[in-house]
Amino acid sequence: MRQIILDTETTGLDPNQGHRIIEFAGLEMEGRKLTGRSLHLYIHPERDIDPDAERVHGISLASLEGKPRFAEVAQQLVDFIDGAELIIHNAPFDVGFMNAEFKRLGMPPVAKVAGGVIDTLAMARDNFPGKRNSLDALCDRFEIDRSNRTYHGALIDCELLSEVYLWMTRGQDSLLMDAGLAENDNSASGMRMAFERKPLAVLQPSADELAEHQAYLDLLDKSVKGSCLWRSIENPPPAEPAA
């Protein structure tokens, strides 16, 4: 399935208070590999940017002078995400802003355009309850290099999120990821694996080791004042004859 790793930066925290999207980034992924196709837009918000938000993403209103308004890029954005499964960290935030922008233009919401949404923050909370699950924390947990991330820019966050998502979903691809398909596999499912099981190495105990083992069992017999469980496993009682 075609997937889009998606992130936005905004003028503030709440679209219901008139805050707007100022940066959009999306990276296309198919078959768990980035295709190289992407969409990265800076957007003039037609309003001020909250100082707290600017400190997070480092985007000033002055730097957006001459950039297109959302109405000018809305169809380009819709065409990019059309039918794709969106992978977003804290999806309600980004989807809420996108829906607010689309609503202003009389366009359908994300749910009508995209093929679904995966919230990696919700996934992380399920997998790591009680732990920090910010994008930074997950990068640290999976040892993903984020040394180039000075600000929370949408494009760099998408690149990091793509790696985080692949780490969190490694078990969902079956063993095909690491083992590969069997050569000349004509099975109906095409999923039969070509595993070669090597014989297990069996180490025989030495005479001294056997003597130590017996001495230890003798101590166990004394502690239970009878025959320890291991004795009955080594020397099971004979089966009773059938009636």
Rank of each mutant, 00 (worst) to 15 (best):
M98W: 14
A194E: 03
F97G: 06
P109V: 00
Q3V: 01
D185H: 05
E159C: 01
A188W: 13
R125V: 01
S174F: 13
R55Y: 08
D119W: 13
V95L: 11
M1V: 03
G115H: 11
G36A: 02
L219K: 15
E143Y: 14
G153N: 04
V224L: 03
E65A: 11
G18F: 08
A182F: 12
E240V: 05
E54F: 11
L6Y: 07
E85L: 15
T8N: 09
E209V: 07
N235D: 11
I22N: 04
E46F: 04
E209S: 08
K222D: 14
A100H: 13
W167Y: 10
L161V: 02
L41W: 07
G115P: 12
M29T: 07
D145R: 03
K222N: 14
D14V: 10
L203Y: 04
N148P: 02
E159L: 11
N99R: 05
F93V: 02
A207W: 10
A215I: 01
R141I: 03
P199L: 01
A91H: 09
R55K: 13
M191T: 15
L135V: 06
P205A: 03
D173L: 10
G58F: 15
P241I: 00
I22H: 07
I43G: 06
E101S: 09
I118E: 12
L210K: 15
A84T: 05
G226M: 04
S60W: 14
S187C: 00
E159Q: 15
G12D: 09
D185A: 02
L219M: 11
G96R: 12
R170I: 05
L181S: 08
P92I: 02
E163G: 00
D157N: 08
Q17P: 00
K198Y: 11
G12H: 11
H19S: 02
R47M: 03
W230Y: 14
A122W: 12
S174E: 07
S38Y: 14
K222R: 15
E240S: 09
K222E: 15
I5M: 11
G36E: 03
R69W: 13
M107N: 01
Q172W: 14
E196Q: 10
E30T: 07
D7H: 10
Q214C: 04
Q214N: 11
Y42P: 02
S174M: 06
L210V: 12
D7Q: 07
S174P: 00
A25R: 02
T35W: 12
A243Q: 12
D48K: 11
K112S: 12
N133H: 10
H44S: 03
Q76L: 09
M168H: 09
L219Y: 13
S206P: 06
G130N: 05
L181W: 08
P92Q: 05
A194Q: 08
G83K: 14
D52R: 05
G18V: 06
T150Y: 10
A25N: 04
E163C: 03
P199G: 01
M191K: 13
R231C: 05
